[in-house]
Lab assay of single mutants.
Amino acid sequence: MDVFMKGLSKAKEGVVAAAEKTKQGVAEAAGKTKEGVLYVGSKTKEGVVHGVATVAEKTKEQVTNVGGAVVTGVTAVAQKTVEGAGSIAAATGFVKKDQLGKNEEGAPQEGILEDMPVDPDNEAYEMPSEEGYQDYEPEA
């Protein structure tokens, strides 16, 4: 019985440690998101679009440190934060509304985080759909 109880105690310690790591990862992701939003706020009209992409990228980098179902929630929060940063930029006159959601080359930025393969159960990952990809044929 002692062996059984000791095993359960060790398992509990492992769960607590994993929860603490997840909590730490979420806190880091939130900190990076805040950094990115402050970065966007300090940019001029020309830099705002690039700044919004930076927020998304920093958040995406930190999301990889967070495991399990938390990833889905962090990704949703990050996307809403990026959308909010863009709205703030438009409201303050840093950028025109028609410039939001495009990178410096004018290509749409939507789907940055949505296409990231995420499995809350950590069982399997699927690649994003290939609808947006084109076949590449090298020139002879």
Rank of each mutant, 00 (worst) to 15 (best):
M1H: 00
D2C: 10
D2Y: 12
D2K: 02
V3P: 00
V3T: 01
F4Q: 00
M5V: 09
K6H: 04
K6D: 06
K6E: 03
G7Q: 11
G7M: 07
L8K: 00
L8C: 01
L8G: 00
S9R: 11
A11I: 15
E13F: 08
E13Q: 14
G14K: 10
V16I: 14
A17T: 01
A17Y: 11
A18W: 07
A19Q: 02
A19L: 15
A19T: 04
E20V: 06
K21N: 03
K21S: 11
T22D: 06
K23P: 01
K23D: 00
Q24H: 11
Q24R: 12
Q24A: 01
G25M: 15
V26R: 00
A29Y: 07
A30S: 02
A30L: 14
A30I: 07
A30Q: 02
G31H: 14
T33N: 02
K34G: 03
E35K: 07
E35M: 04
L38A: 10
G41R: 09
T44K: 01
E46L: 00
G47P: 02
G47R: 14
H50D: 07
H50E: 05
G51A: 04
V52N: 01
V52W: 07
A53V: 11
V55P: 01
A56E: 01
E57I: 02
K58L: 04
T59A: 12
E61Q: 15
E61H: 07
Q62N: 05
Q62L: 08
Q62D: 07
T64K: 10
T64W: 07
T64P: 06
N65D: 04
N65L: 10
G67P: 05
G67M: 01
G67D: 03
G68E: 02
G68K: 15
G68R: 15
A69S: 06
V70Y: 06
V71L: 09
T72I: 14
G73K: 13
T75D: 07
T75Q: 08
A76L: 12
E83A: 11
E83T: 09
G84A: 02
G84W: 11
A85C: 07
A85I: 15
A85S: 05
A85Q: 05
A85L: 08
G86P: 03
G86E: 13
G86L: 14
S87H: 08
A89C: 11
A89P: 07
A89L: 10
A91P: 08
T92G: 09
T92F: 10
T92P: 03
G93V: 09
F94G: 09
F94Y: 14
V95S: 07
V95P: 14
V95D: 12
D98Q: 10
L100P: 01
L100S: 08
K102S: 14
K102T: 07
N103L: 06
G106D: 04
A107Q: 11
P108E: 15
P108C: 07
Q109V: 05
Q109F: 02
I112E: 09
I112Q: 12
I112V: 05
L113S: 13
M116H: 09
M116T: 03
P117M: 09
P117G: 06
D119A: 02
P120C: 05
D121M: 06
N122V: 09
N122D: 13
N122W: 02
E123M: 11
A124I: 04
A124N: 12
Y125T: 12
Y125F: 14
E126N: 08
M127K: 12
M127E: 13
P128T: 07
P128E: 11
E130R: 02
E131M: 01
G132T: 10
Y133F: 14
Y133D: 11
Y133E: 07
Y133G: 09
D135M: 09
D135K: 15
Y136Q: 15
Y136V: 11
E137Y: 02
E137H: 04
E137T: 06
P138H: 07
P138C: 04
E139L: 13
A140K: 15
A140W: 12
A140D: 15
A140C: 10
